[in-house]
């Protein structure tokens, strides 16, 4: 069975370019605007959509994404609304892969079995759950694979060669390489170091490798895209949402446009990169 993720990477392989993966927070700044944003992103150049599941205690996130999650929760966003957003998105787009990213507790409380069933039915393709390392695979990773969802694991600069096989063992869809030791949006990765790390991961797996954490501009995206199958941009998009809000924190006519404008720029960067090797 091929998945939307597999099909998308196969298409891009054919085109000879890397994917742009955009991260925005579900429900930020409100459910309706957030839906309009993800509906507009594929046309702006997003190849894969990562959608954050807001959580009160985002331990791996920097200030921009923390604030995005807070805006969503304050606007009354819930897991049910995240799933409903994807269901609506799928009515008009059956090709763009959607990956949910977040922390385990909201899923655990929703109920793992029920969550997987509802996520699959909504048209979600994969999950990235920051606080579930391979040591906790029985919690969600193995049930997700059984339910036909990809479980995308994070590999980091601290994941050495000895540990990589364990991290990759139950990973599917793609591998997400966290380009810095740190929180989202904090530091800027060095492309040469990143490319060396991606090459190291590729010695252990045939899966595509996406690189994220700290990529903010089209220029950086281009540099990273030279040596990876995908580039993830999150904090910069979430910060753009914030900058477009009115003084009461509400969405304005500019909000969706500001996000798609940045996504187009980033897509230009990614598409302008010549792949190494």
């Amino acid at each position: 069975m091929t998945t939307r993720i597999d099909r998308r990477f196969a298409e891009l392989e054919h085109e000879g370019r890397a994917a742009l993966v955009t991260f925005t927070m579900a429900g930020d700044p409100d459910t309706e605007t957030s839906l309009a944003i993800i509906q507009a992103l594929p046309k702006a150049g997003a190849d894969i959509i990562e959608l954050g599941m807001p959580f009160t205690d985002p331990m791996a996130d920097g200030p921009a994404i923390q604030a995005g999650g807070r805006r969503a929760l304050e606007a009354g966003h819930t897991m049910k609304k995240t799933l409903a957003m994807v269901r609506t998105f799928r009515k008009n787009d059956d090709a763009t892969p959607i990956v949910l990213m977040g922390y385990y507790n909201p899923i655990y409380i929703y109920g793992v079995e029920r969550f997987l069933k509802d996520a699959k039915a909504a048209g979600i393709d994969g999950l990235i759950v920051v606080d579930l390392p391979p040591e906790e695979d029985e919690e969600l990773c193995l049930p997700a694979l059984k339910a036909g969802l990809s479980f995308i694991r994070l590999a980091t600069p601290t994941t050495d060669d000895k540990r990589l096989p364990a991290v990759l063992a139950n990973t599917s869809g793609f591998v997400y390489y966290v380009s810095i030791t740190g929180i989202t949006g904090a530091a800027t990765p060095d492309p040469d170091l990143v490319h060396a790390a991606v090459a190291r991961i590729k010695r252990h797996t045939a899966l595509p490798v996406a690189v994220g954490f700290g990529v903010r501009t089209a220029r950086q995206a281009r540099a990273i895209a030279k040596g990876a199958e995908a580039v993830v941009v999150g904090s910069a998009l979430v910060a753009t949402i914030k900058d477009s809000l009115d003084k009461n924190g509400k969405a304005t006519a500019r909000t969706v446009k500001a996000v798609t404008a940045l996504a187009s720029e980033l897509a230009g960067g990614v598409r302008g990169a010549k792949r190494k090797g």
Partner: peptide, 19 residues
């Protein structure tokens, strides 16, 4: 694996796992 019955465990980001 750090469990007391169903409690405990190691629910941390991969970056921290080797640490």
């Amino acid at each position: 694996r750090g469990h007391f019955g169903i409690y405990g465990g190691r629910f941390v980001a991969e970056t921290l796992m080797p640490l």
